[in-house]
């Protein structure tokens, strides 16, 4: 039913239990968290969470209100409601023999990725970008074998002067 991708940004008290309260709110309603990222902010008592979920408009409004109602949640925003920038980081460990190295190097250059570790048989690549770019890069690997893939999950920030940290 008109499910759209939403990026929810949250500021939460940096306390134990905060994450499970938020995760519990989703699981209790049968909503899936597509990806999730948590890290401290410049205020060490607060963590910032970014999560991506697929939801219809009515449900996302209700979800935002429920999140805001949690005692640990300082501020909530649906970034997809306004102009925003999103980034994700990908770490990709590739198996590569000598003949594949040029091909990989070329793709890395095209996508403006970086090779951050090299062994006899592997390259590890770092790439930052919006999710579409990350997916396109993975797609472009073709026959190159991916040994391991690590994604940070989406990070998002609003454009302009707006800040989630202007605590209400």
């Amino acid at each position: 039913m008109n499910e759209k991708r939403h990026i929810i940004s949250l500021l939460v008290e940096n306390e134990f239990g905060s994450l499970s309260r938020i995760a519990g709110l989703f699981s209790a309603r049968g909503y899936n968290i597509h990806c999730l990222n948590v890290a401290p902010t410049n205020d060490e008592s607060i963590s910032r969470m970014t999560l991506v979920t697929f939801c219809n408009d009515q449900k996302i409004k209700q979800l935002a209100k429920q999140l805001d109602k949690l005692v640990d949640v300082v501020n909530v925003k649906d970034l997809t409601e306004e102009t925003h920038i999103e980034r994700e980081m990908l770490l990709l460990k590739l198996k590569c023999n000598k003949s594949q190295r040029d091909e990989i190097k070329r793709l890395v250059d095209i996508f403006r990725a970086r090779i951050i570790d090299v062994t006899d048989t592997t390259y590890t690549v770092e790439l930052t970008g919006a999710t579409e770019k990350i997916l396109a890069f993975i797609e472009s690997m073709g026959k190159i074998k991916i040994i391991e893939m690590v994604r940070s999950g989406t990070l998002g920030i609003s454009r302009g002067i707006d800040s989630l940290e202007n605590i209400k």
């Binding site: 009515q58 409004k61 209100k65 429920q66």
Partner: peptide, 11 residues
């Protein structure tokens, strides 16, 4: 008193 009660079931 609860903002999350508003339009939860009925708009």
């Amino acid at each position: 008193v609860d903002p999350s009660s508003i339009s939860k079931i009925i708009e």
